[in-house]
Design a protein around this nucleic acid. Structure first.
Lengths: 142, 142
DNA sequence: TATTGTTATACTCTATAACTATA
DNA sequence: TATAGTTATAGAGTATAACAATA
């Protein structure tokens, strides 16, 4: 680890990853703002567009306290993008699910993000395969 | 772009980059929290540890409104990590600079982050060179 | 008793607009 | 008049603690 801090190559890679992270976040927020959504709202809407979730599960996915999810879903619900449904199996649970409009918004958001992440277009299929394998190994190792 | 959305390889790379971004942010927040700092405070402290900056410049680097920087620097100053100095060249300007303690905290933060980004250790020097070149091309192309 | 979701509270970050002191 | 920094205000996200309904 002492070596990694002084190794110029590693430092440059770290800096590049920092740049990727910054660009990704920036574009994510822009895409959300284009629909007058905050980043957190867009994230929740994206999660729910995959499958409806109990409030508790949303908090786990977001790595935040469940009490925060109440407000985020409240605001999505007030805009008609999400609705709360009872869980037939457990009356304590509320399932948050996208409305039709919410699902459409989530799809648009997803497309915008795919486009935003399009710097990958500069890489050939072979390049992308190499990049995929390197990222897999990076993420798998820790 | 239509192709990119349906190409499974590209989709996987996009998802992997998303994972890298999530991990990076998570670890950044953890490192900051270990020093009882918020992400924004840690970011500003990191910026100032490179060089003292006028309030306005900090806002530009953070891509936020200058009025927000006042509070962030206030809180860093209240904790004795940053101080405001007059700019001899322009009496309107206040230069924010880390104190000795602030510089030490910034250094610790940097080390913790380098360590956190250590998944790179799983890659050989040759791998890292390839990764660096791919990231450079990704970032350069847009 | 334990769990789900909510409310209440307090803090931070954010943008907007108006203010001050310089330039 | 223009610019740098601040203040005031309001909205959103966050954590903590306490609560009601249900298990």
């Amino acid at each position: 680890m002492a070596t990694s801090r002084t190794d110029p190559l590693t430092l440059e890679v770290i800096e590049l990853i920092g740049s990727v992270v910054a660009r990704y976040y920036e574009e994510y927020e822009q895409a959300a703002a284009a629909h007058s959504l905050t980043g957190a709202q867009a994230r929740v809407l994206g999660l729910l567009s995959v499958e409806p979730l109990p409030m508790r599960r949303i908090a786990q996915k977001l790595k935040c306290e469940p009490s925060n999810v109440t407000g985020i879903v409240d605001r999505l619900e007030a805009r008609g993008l999400v609705e709360r449904r009872p869980d037939p199996a457990d009356r304590r649970v509320k399932l948050a699910a996208p409305t039709e409009r919410g699902a459409a918004t989530a799809a648009q958001l997803r497309d915008a993000l795919d486009f935003a992440r399009e710097p990958l277009a500069g890489l050939s299929a072979a390049d992308r395969t190499v990049l995929r394998d390197l990222l897999r190994r990076m993420l798998g190792s820790a």
